[in-house]
Design a protein around this nucleic acid. Structure first.
Length: 275
DNA sequence: CCATGAACCTGGTCGC
DNA sequence: TGCGACCAGGTTCATG
């Protein structure tokens, strides 16, 4: 039931799991436990108005989980350690930052050890949509789009791929995995990467994300979620977290370094530096 | 435009 | 066993 880890596949997994559980339910109250969790609204908006707060859809945009009402959306960002689960129990677990109460008696609990996660209320989906870049699993994420995008910037490639206003949904794990797939060293500059590597990068991003979604993400805690199934993609990782281990392709030793302020895993034999 | 580092938080791990 | 240093899959903001 509780899910951890928030890149695109994990957020999509949460959305897929949440959908059948909360669509059609009406919110009667939102109770913040951590005072900063509601970023841009007050819980009083949700008091005494369940008819206006029936959840009509649950979707994902970038790394946001979005609950749709008529004329309103509630956007949830898990950040580093956020987890969501639906329960009928009335205890408030440790590290819970907010509880959403449904008319049915069930609750949506937001657990978040580091307290970075937030909820946002908007009247318009465009508000979130316009601040984020292309969805990598959307058909408009074409070779041409990526070629142009990389050419038009002179940026460290890892930093660019992590930039949510460029491509939305990628995080530290899947960027490292995608760069390894495409044979691109994370030290590379976006405008210096050869055509074939860019084509491979796009292919890698799509394949890896799709496979990770099919595996229900890299990590999921708590087996009671999604009928007891758990995330499996950690078994498929090729470089991330593989410090001092042999590379799958060439058996050279993978090492850990730091790029764009993030821990970064590289096979120096398979991944070429383009600068 | 781009890179870097700090800030927001808590807990796990590693070395001594 | 204890303790400090460092790290963590995210994002934003200030600074050079």
């Amino acid at each position: 039931m509780a899910i951890k880890m928030p890149e695109l596949p994990e957020v999509q997994t949460v959305v897929n799991g949440l959908k059948p559980m909360i669509i059609g339910k009406k919110i009667i109250r939102i109770k913040p436990i951590w005072h900063k969790v509601l970023e841009n609204f007050n819980e009083s908006i949700f008091e005494n108005n369940p008819q206006a707060h029936e959840i009509i859809d649950v979707t994902r945009r970038a790394k946001f989980i979005i609950l749709h009402f008529t004329g309103k959306i509630l956007a949830i960002h898990l950040r580093m350690t956020g987890k969501l689960f639906v329960t009928k129990k009335n205890n408030i677990p440790i590290h819970c930052t907010v509880v959403v109460f449904f008319e049915s008696g069930e609750r949506l609990v937001f657990e978040d050890t580091r307290k970075f996660g937030r909820m946002y209320l908007y009247t318009d989906f465009l508000n979130i949509d316009s601040r984020h870049g292309i969805e990598p699993l959307d058909e408009v994420f074409t070779e041409t789009w990526l070629i142009e995008g990389l050419k038009n910037r002179k940026r460290n490639i890892k930093s660019l791929l992590l930039d949510q206003s460029f491509i939305s949904g990628l995080g530290n794990i899947y960027v490292d995995e995608s760069l390894w797939y495409a044979g691109i060293h994370p030290f590379s500059k976006s405008n210096m990467i050869p055509l074939q590597n860019i084509i491979n990068l796009r292919e890698g991003i799509i394949l890896i994300l799709q496979k990770a979604i099919n595996s229900r993400g890299t990590t999921i805690i708590d087996f009671t979620f999604l009928n007891g199934q758990s995330g499996n993609y950690s078994k498929e990782l090729k470089v991330f977290g593989k410090n001092k281990k042999p590379c799958d392709k060439c058996s050279d030793i993978i090492f850990k370094t730091r790029v764009a302020g993030r821990g970064t895993y590289v096979c120096a034999s398979c991944q070429e530096i383009f600068v």
